[in-house]
Design a protein around this nucleic acid. Structure first.
Lengths: 169, 169
DNA sequence: TATTGTTATACTCTATAACTATA
DNA sequence: TATAGTTATAGAGTATAACAATA
C-alpha cells in the first residue's frame, strides 16, 4: 500500500511508519489552500455526521456561537464573520429560529436591520454542540501541542482578519 | 460599522484599526474547524474565478500537481492524498484526460489499477496554474512571514498525515 | 442612491451505493 | 472475498441576481 514506484519499493527500511506513505506534494508544497481544504473536508464531514441527529449543520453551529458571543449582531455582520454571503445567512438563521434557538428583532434605530439574539434553549444546545465540536477536533490535539494549536489559531485569525474579513460586499 | 453593542460603542479609542471590527468568537475560540473553512472558502472561490477561463477547477489543479509529483500513482492513492472519495477522483481525472493533460495507463502487474501520468502539455499548464495559485495566495504573504507560513504548512501537514490520511476507505 | 434582508435559482463539491473487472 | 475504478444519484454549501423595505 502506498508504494508505487520502483525507487520506493527498493527502499527496505522506513524512517518512520508514516513518512513512507506520504506523497510528494510537488508544486503544492508552497501552497496552503489545498492543505486547508483536505483537513476541513474531513473535519466538517465528521462534525456533520455527529450533528445530524439534532437537525443542524456545521454552519448553523458557527452562526449560533457567533450570535451568542455578539448579541444584537446583524445578519450582514454575521456573514462577514462567517466568511460567507449574506444570502447564505438567511437560511442559517431560519434554521436556528425554527428550532427556537435564536430570534430576529427588528432594530428600532435602523428598521432594515435584524438584531440577532440567542434564546435560553439556544444556549443550552450550544453547549451540547460545542462538546461535539471539541470531540470532533480531538484528533488535532494528538498531532499538535496546545501551544501549537494556539499559534495555529492565531495565525489563521490574522490571515482571515487581514485578508478576507472585508471582502464581503 | 461593526459596532453593535453599547459596551463597544462607549470605547472611544481603538487599539488598532482592525481589532475594533473583529467579532468575539465565543466558544469558537477553542476550535479551528470554522477558521479553516472561512479562509478556504475565500481562497477557493477566488482561485476558481481565476481558473474558470481554462475550464479547470481547484480540485483538478491539486490532482494534476500530485500526479506530476508522483508519476504512476493510482486513483485510490490520489483520493487519499486529496482527502476525498475515490469516486470524486474519477471526474477529476476525466477532466484532466479530456484536456490531454494526464493519462490513465492500465497497470500490467495489477490490471485493476490505473497508473496516472502527466503529459508534456499538462506540465506546461501546471506551471501556468501554479502561478495563478501563488497569486491567489499572495495576500497570505502580507499577513504572515515566510517563516510563519512554513510553520503553518508543516503543522497542517502533520495534522492531515496523522489524523486523516488513512480515514479513506 | 445605498443598504438590509429576502427569494429564487443554479452551480460546485463531495459522498453513498451499486456495479464491473480484476485479484 | 476484497480491491480499483466507474456510474448514477443525492445532498450540503455557496454564490448570483433581482427584489422590497428602509435609510
Amino acid at each position: 500500500m502506498g508504494v508505487r514506484t520502483q525507487a520506493v519499493k527498493t527502499a527496505p527500511a522506513e524512517t518512520t511508519a508514516l513518512a513512507a506513505d506520504v506523497s510528494d506534494l510537488g508544486v503544492l508544497q508552497g501552497l496552503i489552500g489545498f492543505r486547508l481544504r483536505r483537513i476541513q473536508n474531513h473535519l466538517s464531514r465528521t462534525f456533520a455526521e455527529r450533528l445530524i441527529d439534532r437537525g443542524v449543520r456545521p454552519g448553523s453551529f458557527s452562526a449560533l456561537a457567533l450570535v451568542a458571543a455578539n448579541p444584537g449582531i446583524s445578519q450582514t455582520e454575521l456573514s462577514r464573520d462567517l466568511g460567507s454571503d449574506k444570502a447564505s445567512v438567511v437560511s442559517l438563521i431560519d434554521e436556528l429560529e425554527g428550532h427556537g434557538w435564536a430570534t430576529r428583532q427588528r432594530s428600532t434605530s435602523d428598521r432594515r436591520r435584524h438584531a440577532l439574539h440567542v434564546t435560553p434553549a439556544g444556549k443550552k444546545v450550544l453547549r451540547e454542540m460545542t462538546a461535539i465540536a471539541l470531540e470532533t477536533e480531538a484528533p488535532l490535539h494528538e498531532a499538535l501541542s496546545e501551544a501549537e494549536l494556539s499559534v495555529l489559531s492565531e495565525m489563521l485569525d490574522r490571515v482571515y482578519n487581514r485578508c478576507f474579513a472585508y471582502d464581503i460586499d
